[in-house]
């Protein structure tokens, strides 16, 4: 075992894994974290704790991860390259693992142009692939990037993101291969609405044998309304939503949009379970954590292995 994390164990058992996402509060209100975590307890194998997602200032992912760890949930601490240089990153990893955090998802991070501090300086000292390799070096060689011995024993299950819907499409599987080579033990994909393109990408992934060297979790995000579907289709870079999905969402009767979104989400999970090389699902229901239990239950993913 690389980390002994619950998520790693679930994969080891060959069970279809389930993770969800928790967005920390824009402040230090612990009650917000507890309220969100409450809905996820027992429903998923691990919970991603976002790191100032969309470049909006929030409670740190390390602190939030520790809070939910104390509540008996397993965190997947997200770490972006936007806000810290290699010194900060390695230091934070020492701290996080000392606090008992066993999973880390390595991301480049949304550009600060999207957030609430657009005048900030971005760091990007490392990119996500380099971050993976640095953390792998700390774990497997016991060495920092600079070559110093690590005091102690850092156990980490390393994750990375992949976007099958970004461009250039043909390069996406090759880039995944780079992430696997750099150290990604598991992969969570961008949210999937375009199942045809996802299948096509998975075929390229299998052709490269990557599904045997990492655990791929398909990302899903329930749409909340027809308006949201239309907005995302037009405005969110790196996400493609087919017209049929938008049509279904728009056609839903007033007040039933959310239910239709969840239905689509469950259908997507059912399809993911059948795709060779997909080992789990990652449910991104930010600010909708309370709807995760019904998604998990109706998708037949309960009970979770203990």
């Amino acid at each position: 075992m690389k980390s002994g994390s619950n998520l790693e164990k679930v994969f080891e058992k060959g069970v279809f894994a389930v993770t969800a996402e928790l967005g920390p509060p824009k402040g230090n209100d612990v009650k917000v974290v507890m309220e969100k975590a409450k809905h996820l307890k027992g429903m998923v194998d691990a919970v991603n704790v976002t790191d100032n997602q969309t470049a909006i200032v929030r409670m740190s992912s390390i602190a939030t991860s520790k809070l939910i760890l104390d509540m008996g949930l397993e965190p997947v601490m997200q770490m972006t390259c936007r806000d810290r240089n290699r010194i900060g990153i390695q230091s934070d990893i020492f701290g996080a693992t000392a606090l008992g955090i066993k999973n880390c998802l390595c991301l480049s991070g949304d550009h600060q142009r999207f957030g609430n501090e657009i005048d900030s300086k971005n760091v990007y000292d490392l990119d996500s692939i380099q971050l993976l390799s640095v953390l792998k070096g700390i774990r497997d060689e016991g060495k920092t990037l600079g070559g110093d011995e690590v005091e102690g024993d850092v156990k980490l299950f390393l994750g990375a993101a992949a976007n099958p819907f970004g461009d250039p499409f043909e390069f996406r599987a090759i880039r995944l291969a780079k992430k696997v080579k750099a150290g990604a033990d598991f992969i969570q994909t961008q949210c999937i609405y375009d199942m045809d393109r996802f299948r096509e990408w998975m075929k390229m992934v299998r052709d490269l044998g990557l599904h045997e060297r990492t655990h791929i979790m398909g990302g899903v995000m329930p749409l909340k309304s027809g308006g949201m579907a239309r907005y995302m289709q037009k405005n969110v870079p790196g996400i493609t939503i087919p017209d049929e999905i938008v049509k279904r969402m728009v056609a839903a009767p007033k007040g039933k949009g959310a239910a239709e979104g969840i239905k689509i989400c469950i259908e997507t999970i059912e399809q993911l379970k059948e795709i060779e090389g997909v080992d789990g699902v990652h449910i991104m229901a930010l600010e909708w954590e309370h709807r995760v239990p019904e998604i998990v239950e109706e998708a037949g993913l309960l009970p979770r292995p203990s």
Binding site: H111, Y124, D127, Q130, G166, K178
Partner: peptide
């Protein structure tokens, strides 16, 4: 690259354009 990535592109690349604009 808006993020000066050395192993890009990030997930925000679409239709040849950067996620920032």
């Amino acid at each position: 690259c808006s993020k000066s990535l050395l192993n890009g592109p990030c997930g925000g690349s679409q239709d040849g354009k950067c996620e920032i604009s």
